[in-house]
Structure formats: structure tokens, C-alpha cells
Nucleic acid binder design. Structure first.
Lengths: 119, 119
DNA sequence: CCGCATCCGTCACGATACTG
DNA sequence: CAGTATCGTGACGGATGCGG
């Protein structure tokens, strides 16, 4: 895997330019429910219904949509059991793990400081 | 400054519950333009017009709205010079710096991997 | 019973014009 | 230069219903 050594200068050639592909991925990750789904999956693999219940307030439609995008981006792995009743498990891929490794510190900080911020 | 980072269990009492105040802050930070404005300001203080040009694609309305929210949350400091023509500088507060410290690694990773992800 | 698709309302967003 | 006001559109999101 190619890991560019240069810490890209985000302010010049990166995310700030409208045409930059990272804008797309950014929108996926920072979508209303994307972050929460990733956080939920960061601890353990979960079934559809479990996700639905853990991520409070998400509608079925949005959960499905969010999961589809995250799966397409290769962050989430979907494993469907062809049983009756059906069972589908969602888990993080290695790439998804890399992402949440960077995401969780941010979330923890926000959670810890939210009270003070809104005060 | 309080930096006790209790690794809050995000999956039980945190961001996943609908009533959690961190949901509000999360929405502010991950708003369509919030992240990009924070990244732009992470390198240097900027004037209104500079921000408008750096964050490509942002409309005046959205920039104003985003800045207002970020200022209310205490992430961004607004300094207006009562001159003609007017001059307004925006910069990160200490709290905003704490936030971007956690945000930038995420952004760098996304920028570096976006190509591969969308492929 | 679990997962997904379709319909439809709402509001966030962008374009434009205007003010201090 | 730095915003504010108004309006039209389109995407997002919730409720409902179907398929396996």
C-alpha cells in the first residue's frame, strides 16, 4: 500500500478545492448518520436491528442508505446469512478501522466538552 | 485547562443516545462547511473574503451561517475593525484549536486515501 | 420478523439583489 | 468589504408498505 510521506497541505491542494475527490468521502463520513454508525461499529460487529436500536433516532431508510454508502467506500463489511429469518451482520473493514482510529478521539473530545460548549 | 480524557464509552452513554447534547455540537462541526472552515482557519487567521475564496464553493449565506455557529460554540473568534472599508478577521480560539488538533489527522487521512476509496 | 424500496413533505441550500 | 434579506429549488429525511 502506498502511503504518501508528505503530510498533504490541506489548505493548498487538498480538501478546500471544490473539485477535490476528498470532498465526496468527507461528505460520506460526516453525513448525519455516518459518523454515528461508524462509532457504533467501532466497538463491535452489529446486526441490522442492533444498529437501528443503538443509533437512536435513525430511520430505517437512512440507516440503509448510510450503510450502503459506507459499504461502497469500503469502510463497512456486510455479511448476510441466507437464513429464515434473515440475519445480516455489519462490521468495520481494515480501512474502516483506520478511519475510526482517527474519528474516535474527535468524538470523545466532543462528547466530553459538549456540555461546556453549549452552556 | 481540563484535559482529563476519560475514554468515555461512546457506545453506551454518549453520542449514540438521541438526547445527548453532543449530537448538537457534532452537527455543527460536521456540517457541510463547518469542517472546511475549521481546516482553513487551522493554518492561519483569515479575513472574510479570504475564507470565501479558500473554501471553494461556499456561498455567502452558508459562510455567514457557519461562522456564526462556530463563533457561538466558541471555536472561532471574530474580530471586526470599525474602519471603512470594514475588516473582519476570523481565527481559532483555544477551544477551536483543541478541536482541529483532533480534526486534522482525520482530514489528512481522508485526503490521502480518497482516491483509492472512490476507485 | 428483518431488511429494503417508494412516496411525499419539509427545509436546508444556493442565487441574486441590496445595505452599512 | 462584509454582511443581510428574500425567494425558488432540490435533496434529505420520515412514514408507509412490500418482499424474503
Amino acid at each position: 500500500m502506498k502511503v504518501s510521506i508528505k503530510l498533504a497541505d490541506l489548505t493548498t491542494d487538498g480538501i478546500l478545492s471544490a473539485a477535490c475527490p476528498s470532498r465526496i468521502v468527507l461528505d460520506h463520513v460526516t453525513s448525519k448518520w455516518g459518523v454515528l454508525v461508524l462509532v457504533a461499529l467501532s466497538e463491535q460487529s452489529l446486526r441490522w436491528g442492533e444498529l437501528r436500536r443503538m443509533v437512536e433516532g435513525v430511520s430505517e431508510k437512512m440507516l440503509a442508505q448510510t450503510l450502503k454508502v459506507l459499504e461502497q467506500d469500503g469502510f463497512v463489511l456486510r455479511v448476510a446469512q441466507p437464513t429464515i429469518p434473515p440475519r445480516v451482520d455489519y462490521s468495520l473493514t481494515d480501512r474502516g478501522r483506520e478511519l475510526t482510529d482517527r474519528l474516535l478521539p474527535l468524538m470523545e473530545w466532543i462528547t466530553a466538552n459538549a456540555g461546556e460548549i453549549l452552556a
